[in-house]
Write a protein that binds this DNA or RNA. Sequence first.
DNA 1: TCTGGGGTCCTAGGACCC
DNA 2: TCTGGGGTCCTAGGACCC
Length: 432
Amino acid sequence: MKHEDKVFALIDVNNCYVSCERVFNPSLNRKPVIVLSNNDGCAVARSQEAKDLGIKMAVPLFQIQELVHKHNIIVLSSNYALYAEMSRRFMQILSTFVSEHEQEVYSIDECFLDLSRYPQNYDLSNYAQQMRKRIFKWIGLPCCVGIGRSKTEAKMANHIAKKNPHFNGVCNLVEMDPLVTESIFQSIDVAEVWGVGRKHSKKLQSMGINTVFDLAISQPQVLGKQFSVVMQRTVLELQGISCIEIEHTPPSKQQIVASRSFGQRITELNELKEALSMYVQDATQRLRDEKLLCGCIVVFVQSNPFDANIPFYNKSCSYALPQPTDNAVELVKLSIGLLDQIFKEGIQYKKCGVILTGLEPKSTHTYDLLTDMSIIKESDDLMDALEAVQQKFGKKKIAVGPCFIPGRSWSMCRDKLSKNYFKWDELLVIMK
DNA sequence: TCTGGGGTCCTAGGACCC
DNA sequence: TCTGGGGTCCTAGGACCC
């Protein structure tokens, strides 16, 4: 198949986190609602009503307190367990429209579909409307669909569908009159293009490239030289030449990061150790879920970068393991050792974290000749036992090192957390 | 007072090798 | 004063994404 014949769709849940909350709490409908990031720091999701009030993406809560009071904006902590379950169902419904290798789960609320096989047999706009209807009917989430000849075009189409209600949730650039496409592209800021961020859009504007249309008629190679091959691909994709394929099986992870800002500043080494040992176990859990081993561990600590009066302290330390592992006891012990090396007295710490890298599949790892396999076996048995206890009695019943101590000053703020309606003891109560 | 977290990819530059 | 060229590997930093 020639690349010209490719067709992609991007389906994206509108205001995802707010929409998830509204499914279980209809009193939020038609009201301005925002959902906050971890630690109740920034607004990471806004309902349309909140956007209309001028609340920007990722703005810190303290900067909009006045607006919040004035307009009775409803403020919620983020409830990732809930959103993850809704996301799983959203993706599952979309999987009924294509075959397995034609679907790519791109993010928690976005999904690419390769529809290249379908134009002959389906009216794609109609097919997309069926997707929207089924998703809304089955799980109550509103979404938009963009269709284009490349992923970047599909993203653009999705953006157009979202901003223009008369499209009724579906924008199909493949079928659109090129003159109409052109005039729409002329009206959209180049910063809206997928892959063009703040820095690049500034530079593009300084070169006289202000709109999506300007970028689409640029010369890919010239921009490739001035930016990078990424920008070159973006231009080609906007011209309808697909350069980025669907990834139906997620590529295996390069690294696993677990970090958090603290609710309050920390100065004591012991408290940092408590936090870090928790994060390491979170990372190790994800490592084991992916059936990977970790060959290198990085620990970092930071003070508050926004504090203008005090110099920013940002230090990390890494260690390459002689033998890759997925053992939480070992990883906690090592990371505490690394923390000892980078800890400095008198700093007000705001954040710490761990990065597991040098990852490789556990199934294909070859141990060297001198490895005592009985030790590996013991480690596996221990981790299995640990996980079995957690599964049966809850995540916080057993752990490695000093963690899960309630009431710590550094623990995350989540004051306005909704329930996880998918758990037995938090189900929605209709009537009592 | 209060500013998220988890990722990927690309590039430039240094170290090192022959 | 003259002072290779080409290759690889690693790392840090920057840009982007949601």
